[in-house]
Simulated scan of single mutants.
Amino acid sequence: MVRMNRAHTEIAASAYRTLATFRDAVVRYDRASLQHIQAADLTSQQYALLVHVAGHLTGTPSVGELAESMLLGHNSVVELSQRAERNGLLQRAVDPARGNRTLLILTAEGARRVDEVTRALVLQLGQERTDVRASLSRWEATLRSQAVQAAFLNPQGPAALVPDYALRPAAARHQALTWTLLQHHLHALSPYHHVPMTASGEYRYPPFKRYWQGGPDHAQLLWVNQRPAGFVLLRQGRDATRFALSELSVVPAWQGRGLGRSLARDLLGARRGTWTVDFHRENGGARRFWERVLDDLHLEVTSVIPVRLPLGGGERWQFTVPPSG
């Protein structure tokens, strides 16, 4: 039997998983985009050319200007624009002010085709855009994390991304702090819920009061280095066998370090019974987060229920955490 010695990278494996997720999301978006571009009988470079011409401030960019903005050689743009002209997408004209410049002008057919593709990309690739945005945000948070920065700037072996943390019940004096953290959380989710702010610059969250009434529903605060790093809004049945996790949030400074995942595992492990978790159905990042958490604990979703969340439509996953032992 061959013995395999696995080398460890100085940058933590969780950071590479985040990077891989981001790159995969970009590739999926590009592939899905290419299908719509080809359906309009265009190549990806032709579509890029039409986008640049359509978006130019004057509407008549020169070949040289597009070569610079598209990061292509001058001759490449000449050939690309000539093919587009033969296909009736562009018109090439000599600049009357400078005879040595060729201007590119969108034709009616070119305008129709670029509109057709762009409209399809906007209307039909919402989930792909959401995944790219969410994975990029997570990758940026990873890059801001102290452990990953240390691995880049002063490598001294593998970095441990999950910091020491404490999760404690929120006291009455923490209600304002929890509300502030909730507002930041809801703002981060705004691409999914599309709910406008109030005149005071806040998002409404009607269920918030129930977590401060002394019943089984309660808020907990996440602390790292004696500073607030996130919060949990947890609902609990009176028999302590049914639990609903309404919100789980980690502030951006501590995202991308495995903290949320570790926190979720601890929450589920400490309360055995039937659980539900809610998230917006367009939030692909939240979906993958809970898939990983449940996979870590070898749990399976028993039902998926469409629900109306405080800010828009969502999904409710139900699963059971069995008794220990």
Results as ranks from 00 to 15, higher is better:
residue 3 R to D: 06
residue 4 M to T: 15
residue 8 H to V: 15
residue 11 I to F: 05
residue 12 A to C: 13
residue 17 R to K: 09
residue 23 R to F: 14
residue 25 A to G: 09
residue 34 L to R: 01
residue 36 H to L: 14
residue 37 I to H: 00
residue 39 A to F: 01
residue 41 D to F: 12
residue 43 T to W: 03
residue 46 Q to D: 07
residue 49 L to F: 08
residue 52 H to N: 14
residue 57 L to Y: 12
residue 57 L to M: 08
residue 58 T to N: 06
residue 62 S to F: 04
residue 65 E to Q: 07
residue 66 L to W: 01
residue 66 L to V: 09
residue 67 A to P: 10
residue 68 E to Q: 10
residue 74 H to W: 06
residue 79 E to K: 04
residue 81 S to G: 11
residue 83 R to Q: 14
residue 85 E to Y: 02
residue 90 L to H: 04
residue 94 V to Y: 03
residue 101 R to Q: 14
residue 103 L to R: 12
residue 103 L to K: 09
residue 106 L to T: 03
residue 111 A to T: 14
residue 111 A to Y: 01
residue 112 R to S: 15
residue 113 R to D: 13
residue 114 V to A: 07
residue 115 D to Q: 02
residue 116 E to H: 06
residue 119 R to D: 15
residue 124 Q to T: 09
residue 125 L to M: 03
residue 125 L to Y: 04
residue 126 G to Q: 10
residue 127 Q to G: 12
residue 127 Q to M: 13
residue 131 D to Q: 07
residue 131 D to S: 11
residue 136 L to G: 10
residue 137 S to T: 15
residue 137 S to C: 06
residue 139 W to I: 04
residue 149 Q to K: 02
residue 155 P to Y: 00
residue 159 A to L: 03
residue 160 A to N: 05
residue 160 A to V: 14
residue 161 L to Y: 00
residue 165 Y to Q: 03
residue 166 A to Q: 08
residue 167 L to M: 11
residue 172 A to H: 08
residue 174 H to G: 03
residue 177 L to K: 00
residue 180 T to R: 07
residue 183 Q to E: 08
residue 184 H to L: 10
residue 184 H to P: 03
residue 190 S to V: 11
residue 191 P to R: 02
residue 192 Y to W: 07
residue 194 H to S: 08
residue 195 V to E: 12
residue 199 A to G: 10
residue 200 S to K: 03
residue 203 Y to Q: 01
residue 207 P to A: 03
residue 209 K to C: 13
residue 211 Y to D: 11
residue 213 Q to C: 07
residue 217 D to Q: 03
residue 218 H to K: 05
residue 220 Q to F: 09
residue 220 Q to V: 05
residue 221 L to N: 04
residue 222 L to Y: 03
residue 223 W to S: 05
residue 223 W to I: 15
residue 226 Q to T: 15
residue 227 R to M: 14
residue 229 A to K: 00
residue 231 F to M: 12
residue 232 V to A: 05
residue 236 Q to G: 06
residue 237 G to L: 03
residue 243 F to L: 05
residue 245 L to I: 10
residue 245 L to C: 09
residue 245 L to N: 03
residue 249 S to Q: 07
residue 250 V to M: 02
residue 250 V to I: 15
residue 252 P to F: 01
residue 256 G to W: 00
residue 258 G to D: 04
residue 259 L to H: 06
residue 261 R to L: 13
residue 261 R to Y: 08
residue 268 L to V: 13
residue 271 R to P: 07
residue 272 R to K: 08
residue 273 G to K: 01
residue 273 G to M: 07
residue 273 G to R: 00
residue 274 T to C: 10
residue 275 W to T: 06
residue 276 T to W: 02
residue 280 H to G: 06
residue 282 E to I: 04
residue 282 E to T: 11
residue 283 N to R: 01
residue 286 A to F: 02
residue 286 A to K: 00
residue 286 A to Q: 05
residue 287 R to Y: 14
residue 288 R to P: 12
residue 292 R to V: 15
residue 301 V to M: 01
residue 311 L to N: 10
residue 313 G to T: 14
residue 313 G to R: 03
residue 316 R to Q: 14
residue 317 W to V: 11
residue 323 P to R: 00
residue 324 S to M: 09
residue 325 G to S: 10
